[in-house]
């Protein structure tokens, strides 16, 4: 073995393969988001095509496990983050995201955007919303839980897959939902619920994948998720359970990074986000509700979805103030 020959070859190939290919003359915009947004069946590829058609640029997605992981990654990377836009945080995270000092006001007119309860902010712009819900397989479960209480106290043999609140916005959403309903008794409720939890995944994709492959009859997802199965798969098999106490609302937002390499391009993307070119892809690809005008009607299936009588949503400040302590409480309860 000629070691002296192998090493340089290995190192050069390693470098050649790892560094990104030389960029072409056009500008590049990198957007950090969560993984399901950019998967083949998510809205990412279509939005990319639509935006590139009008920006004369190259749009690059970088997907991480889920929304909270996105914030973790930003905290870690700090000013070294090589992105212009971060898309996929939600209102529960915006205060913490602002406290990193990495975002700057978008300076855009956002009148066309409307969400339940009305959220408007100088730094973050909503791009879709929905309510969290337990989605169940009607062929595996005959009597789905009718309330959060039912879910907590139901038969431990009927399992649910949930997401980790330390990485995932649905996971964090369930944490805040439980807190909204149970208050100081949330810890005891989690201890009870933990008996029904098959596994805790880092992101929504993994959890939903386990659910659809039949590993568990229930999953934490959205009231809008069944629309996917009705539209794309033409089946009513998967349904969202309506909970008597009400449902926790999620408003997903995007923001502009202060150190964006192509700031104007990043701003252009955020403007584009509020137009039909982006919003059209939300209902039938991200399976969430659009926040601004679309040029095509919502599919019929959306009228059959659960529409919660009552919505919960903590203010961004309250969520930020309590997140760490509540997650510790969750860890404590779930590890018992």
């Amino acid at each position: 073995m000629r070691i002296s020959h192998v090493l340089p070859v290995a190192l050069t190939t390693m470098l050649a393969f790892s560094s990104s290919p030389a960029a072409s003359a056009e500008k590049t915009l990198t957007v950090y988001t969560y993984e399901s947004f950019v998967s083949d069946w998510g809205p990412g590829p279509k939005i990319e095509a639509a935006f590139e058609a009008e920006c004369n640029c190259d749009l690059k997605w970088v997907g991480v496990a889920d929304g909270v992981a996105l914030l973790n990654r930003l905290k870690l990377e700090g000013e070294k983050a090589r992105a212009g836009v971060v898309l996929g945080l939600d209102t529960n995270l915006v205060t913490e995201a602002k406290n990193t000092g990495l975002f700057e006001p978008h300076g855009l007119e956002t009148k066309s955007v409307s969400v339940p309860g009305g959220f408007s902010d100088t730094v973050f712009i909503p791009y879709d919303y929905s309510h969290f819900a337990v989605v169940y397989d009607s062929e595996a479960i005959s009597a789905p839980p009718a309330s959060l209480k039912d879910l907590v106290e139901g038969d431990p043999r009927d399992k649910i897959v949930i997401q980790d609140p330390r990485t995932s916005t649905p996971g964090l959403g369930l944490l805040l939902w439980m807190k909204s309903v149970y208050g100081d008794d949330a810890k005891a409720a989690w201890e009870k619920l933990s008996k029904r939890v098959l596994t805790v995944t880092p992101g929504w994709s993994e959890a939903y994948g386990l659910f659809t492959s039949g590993e568990a009859p229930m999953v934490l997802s959205y009231t809008t998720s069944p629309a996917y199965h009705m539209v794309a798969e033409e089946t009513d098999r998967y349904q969202a359970a309506e909970f008597a106490e009400g449902h926790y609302l999620q408003i997903e937002v995007a923001g502009l990074l202060a150190h964006a390499p192509e700031k104007e391009l990043a701003r252009q993307f955020l403007s584009f986000m509020m137009t039909p070119g982006f919003q059209n892809e939300i209902p039938t690809n991200n399976w969430m509700m659009p926040v601004a005008a679309t040029s095509i009607d919502l599919p019929e299936a959306f009228s059959t979805l659960v529409s919660p009588q009552k919505s919960f949503l903590y203010s961004p400040e309250d969520a930020a103030e309590n997140r760490a302590a509540w997650i510790d409480e969750w860890l404590d309860a779930m590890s018992r």
Binding site: N72, S194, V197, W330
Partner: peptide, 22 residues
């Protein structure tokens, strides 16, 4: 295969403390 906080070992918890919570 752990499946959540109830079945976490020290090694996995170290990884999570850095990658999840920093």
């Amino acid at each position: 295969l752990g499946g959540g906080p109830a079945a976490t070992t020290l090694e996995v918890a170290i990884y999570q403390a850095l990658r999840f919570d920093f």
